[in-house]
């Protein structure tokens, strides 16, 4: 990551382009948080690249005064991988959505994460297709009714955090668009993580899917439903910590009254090498309509793909010496004429 001597501010990361998301869109809050956080963490605009695909969230790069590519639908992780491999000096961010990252681009997301490419991937999940005006997405709840599914969605939704943990992503977190403090902390840790960092951000689409995350955002409901994960702490929640997450004999987790939990309560450890516990935790909520964990599910160190690619190049140079083109052309059987 870039180190910074000069003092930069949010303004240095804000482009002169007018932001054109719908008024009230959750994207504004995320943009403001990222623009404030980057200078604070010592990032440099010239060394920062935002790569996106297609969708509302994918307009993000235009509003950052950094380098950026607004690419094609679903392919941002692929472009970002090529850039990260070939340019170790850059901070490469991917901004994607539930349609872009999990539907048309699900394959690229999965492979970037399992390789552990040094990318910070922000998935804005609004459980809807916004740019195409309101069709259901791969994260829309089963039975939800939208333009393309007036009788109710038949697709079982993907839980993005479960998917990321399933391919053993080394950093997996979840936050909420308007919870600036929580989002900042999750993104800060993502930035500091070497390797793929995957952050699902619940983002409200006030036009086509307003209130999808009300259970976690409404004043009177959020304390009952946010399961805030803290490293080293027992996982309890509720206004008076009256509920606890416990491990079941079959490996799953469930929620019980805290007084019944006893020593079965799960102590959160994002550094646990095995992703199994984090995965079980992610299964507590298929869609965030009730108690839902937010925070850092997993944060482990593993060799970073692009570092390994470059290491192989250096090893080859050390073993065979720098490439000699004339010698390469004349390798194998040669013969002289005349």
């Amino acid at each position: 990551m870039t180190t910074n001597e000069g003092k930069l501010t949010k303004k240095d990361f804000t482009s002169d382009r007018e932001v054109r998301w719908c008024p009230g869109c959750g994207d504004y809050a995320i943009l403001a948080t990222v623009q404030s956080l980057l200078p604070e963490m010592g990032a440099r605009p010239e060394s920062t690249v935002f790569v996106s695909g297609i969708g509302c969230s994918s307009r993000f790069p235009y509003y950052m005064d950094t380098y950026g590519i607004h690419s094609i639908h679903g392919r941002a992780p692929a472009l970002a991988t090529g850039l990260a491999i070939s340019r170790p000096d850059l901070d490469v961010w991917v901004v994607t959505g539930d349609g872009d990252g999990l539907s048309i681009g699900g394959n690229h997301l999965m492979h970037a994460l399992r390789r552990n490419v040094n990318l910070k991937i922000l998935l804005f999940n609004n459980e809807i297709y916004g740019l195409t005006k309101g069709q259901y997405s791969p994260t829309s709840p089963l039975g939800s009714t939208h333009k393309s599914t007036p009788l109710g969605s038949l697709d079982r939704p993907i839980n993005p955090v479960s998917l990321a943990l399933g391919v053993e992503a080394t950093y997996v977190a979840r936050s909420i668009d308007t919870d600036r403090q929580h989002l900042s902390e999750v993104l800060r840790r993502a930035y500091q993580h070497r390797g793929s960092a995957f952050v699902e951000i619940y983002q409200n689409c006030n036009i086509f899917n307003d209130g999808a995350f009300a259970a976690l955002k409404d004043k009177d409901r959020k304390d009952h439903n946010q399961i805030r994960l803290e490293s080293g702490e027992p996982i309890t929640f509720g206004p008076d910590n009256e509920r606890a997450v416990v491990a079941e004999p079959d490996g799953s987790m469930s929620i019980v009254p805290t007084e019944e939990a006893g020593d079965r309560v799960v102590i959160h450890d994002p550094a646990r090498e095995e992703p199994t516990t984090a995965f079980a935790l992610s299964r507590l909520a298929l869609n965030p309509v009730g108690p839902t964990p937010i925070g850092i599910f997993r944060d482990v160190d593993r060799p970073v793909y692009d570092d390994l690619v470059r290491e192989q190049v250096e090893q080859s140079r050390a073993q065979q010496g720098d490439g000699d083109l004339q010698a390469l052309l004349a390798s194998g059987n040669v013969w002289d004429v005349g």
Binding site: L79, G82, L83
Partner: peptide, 9 residues
């Protein structure tokens, strides 16, 4: 895709 990213870089 990776090639477009690398060309940009």
């Amino acid at each position: 895709g990776s090639v477009i990213g690398a060309a940009f870089g």
